[in-house]
Design a protein around this nucleic acid. Structure first.
Length: 424
RNA sequence: GCGGGAGUAGCUCAGCUGGCUAGAGCGUCAGAUUGUGGCUCUGAAGGUCGGGGGUUCGAGCCCCCUCUCUCGCCCCA
């Protein structure tokens, strides 16, 4: 029902009920798994100087060209972050974390903003959890990062995640630039046979021709040289070591020569997690190595690797797979009859909460029956009943709400104890 | 930015070629049961039929405009 009035902005959503639980689970699992691998949480601002994103993501990418929310209050130009890495690396440099010795492992989570047309699994405000491991080029670190992503999905009960892997080489002349030239030479004579967008990509970003979804382009691309077969010696060794690092732990993956990620800063390893439950936007996470970014942002030459996982897409997979999203049931519901009992019950409930028990009561002046129904609907394990006949004697009735459960009447000051005994 | 689909009760939806006070299931509230929930039965509340305009004796239904949601293209999480 589209009532007149203020609605959430197009491409944004409210998370409550089971969605709220799934949303929190996605973040909770991140905290649990990532910290187990030695990552520390960092929370950076959701907006940054526009130039930060332009420099890191790449001027010619769709994100920077047309998807950023940019504001110019006063003489500043600020942008709502379209991804997490740039801000984290900025923070790392600003606080000289890279100078404190050794590898820096950070994780983050929160909203990202891109002004795209919303569709399934794509919103204008969406959420990611991600990690950055800065200060090492060890291929075993790539493998660890990739496996950590798999561990994360597993923790949430998401089975059937597919891992796609590729290497796009490094910036050295004999590596990616040479491969680009190879591609150009191979494509140039047949350029007319490719789709219009690919013809545009030929000059702008030739690697993207590889993952065009147009069927005829796919066929043409199949005969093109593969990036992972044209790597320089060091990149080739690195890629082999990453694969060995995955094999050693039995992680399944598919080397996919068409995997080319859209952000300019990636080097060598790139990977994507996909899931069939999602629809057209089937990537539930992705990442790679970015050995040039720290330097690009004004730091020393530093190797790094990271990933970002899409919370909304994770939630779609959780829903499709029926991953448990049960609310923790209320432990106690208090039923008070009449004004005096209502007051006394408020005190009783307060004592229970102080004792660490989740408890709630009626505040709508409902009938006894209605309060019983409320206790049932809320899933309360125990109901407390306080009417005038109990109150006169200074007692309270404690009822086990389970099928066929009994009840007992105890002195008021023994109520908390009686509840504790009845709870499983 | 460009296409396709859809907007009827809190939710999921039905509503035939236009025809009385617009329906169902679930949920909510109440009663059956004065202080005992779930199951059952009975009843009630709840709708500017997304909005605006048009055609018509008459529009939820037909036409136009508009808004929103949704799926897809592009790109990505």
């Amino acid at each position: 029902m589209a009532k007149d009035g203020i609605r959430a902005i197009e491409g944004t959503r409210d998370y409550f009920g089971v969605d709220g639980i799934r949303f929190e689970k996605a973040f909770g699992a991140a905290a649990e798994i990532f910290s187990r691998y030695g990552y520390e949480k960092i929370t950076s601002p959701v907006f940054e100087a526009t130039g930060l994103f332009a420099r890191s993501i790449g001027e010619a990418t769709d994100i920077v060209e047309k998807e950023m929310y940019t504001f110019t209050p006063g003489s500043d130009s600020i942008t709502l972050r379209p991804e997490g890495t740039a801000g984290v690396i900025r923070a790392l440099l600003q606080h000289s974390m890279h100078k404190q010795g050794g590898l820096v492992k950070l994780w983050y989570g929160g909203p990202m903003f891109r002004r795209e047309r919303p569709q399934k699994g794509r919103q204008r405000q969406f959420h990611q959890v991600g990690i950055e491991a800065v200060g090492s080029g060890d291929p075993l670190l790539d493998a660890e990062v990739i496996r950590m992503g798999l561990a994360y999905y597993e923790r949430l009960g998401i089975g059937g995640v597919r891992l796609r892997l590729n290497s796009i080489g490094c910036a050295k002349d004999e590596c990616r630039p040479a491969y680009r030239k190879l591609l150009k030479d191979a494509i140039a004579p047949k350029l007319g046979e490719f789709c219009k967008t690919c013809q545009g990509r030929f000059e702008k970003n030739i690697l993207r021709i590889l993952d065009c979804k147009n069927e005829s382009c796919k066929k043409l691309a199949a005969d093109l040289p593969k990036s992972h077969e044209k790597l320089c010696g060091e990149c080739d060794q690195h890629f082999t070591a990453v694969k060995e690092g995955l094999d050693a732990h039995g992680a399944q993956y598919d080397v996919d020569p068409t995997l080319v990620r859209g952000l300019d800063y990636y080097t060598r390893t790139v990977f994507e997690y996909t899931h069939s439950a999602l629809g057209a936007q089937d990537a539930i996470g992705g990442g790679g190595r970015y050995d040039g970014l720290v330097e690009e942002l004004g730091g020393p030459a530093t190797q790094a690797v990271g990933f970002a996982l899409g919370v909304e897409r994770i939630m779609i997979a959780m829903e499709a797979l029926g991953c448990c999203a049960c609310e923790t049931p209320l432990q106690v519901y208090g039923i008070g009859l009449g004004e005096d009992c209502h007051k006394a019950m408020a005190g009783m409930i307060a004592r229970l909460r102080n004792a660490g028990i989740s408890a709630d009561m009626d505040y709508e002046g409902k009938s006894f029956k209605a309060q019983m129904r409320a206790a049932n609907r809320r899933g309360a394990l125990v109901a407390l009943i306080l009417g005038d006949n109990e109150l006169e004697k200074g007692e309270i009735t404690v009822k086990d709400m389970r099928e066929g459960g009994g009840q007992e009447t105890v002195p008021l000051n023994a109520g908390v104890e009686a509840v504790l005994q009845m709870l499983p």
